[in-house]
């Protein structure tokens, strides 16, 4: 069977689910962050596949923007995690319950 748009979209959906599984199942803030990165990458793959099969470069420009914003987001998020770790000596979501009623 010829590989087409559907194949790439299925891979993208599965990768997104894996990222979601990481966010839901893991309890370490850093690994949760890696799950978020996986989900962003899955969206990128879907956009590039749409761009390729519609002969339209706008999707790839969008992916370029997403990669840049993701880099900024990772930098800010990781510095927040470091600041949190300095204050609480933990990077574990189950220890961060001060907002719990």
């Amino acid at each position: 069977m010829q590989v087409g748009l559907h194949h790439y979209l299925v891979v993208s959906a599965l990768l997104f689910s894996l990222g979601l599984l990481g966010v839901l199942a893991r309890r370490n803030l850093l690994v949760i962050y890696m799950g978020l990165e996986l989900m962003l990458n899955a969206a990128n793959l879907a956009l590039v596949a749409f761009s390729r099969y519609n002969a339209n470069l706008n999707g790839q420009v969008m992916v370029f923007f997403i990669i840049t914003v993701a880099a900024a987001e990772v930098a800010v998020g990781l510095s927040l995690i470091v600041a949190l770790y300095r204050k609480r000596q933990s990077a574990h979501v189950e220890d961060l319950t001060s907002l719990k009623l």
Partner: peptide, 9 residues
């Protein structure tokens, strides 16, 4: 399925 065209990034 979309139409098969080619675009080079």
């Amino acid at each position: 399925p979309a139409a098969e065209q080619l675009v080079e990034g």
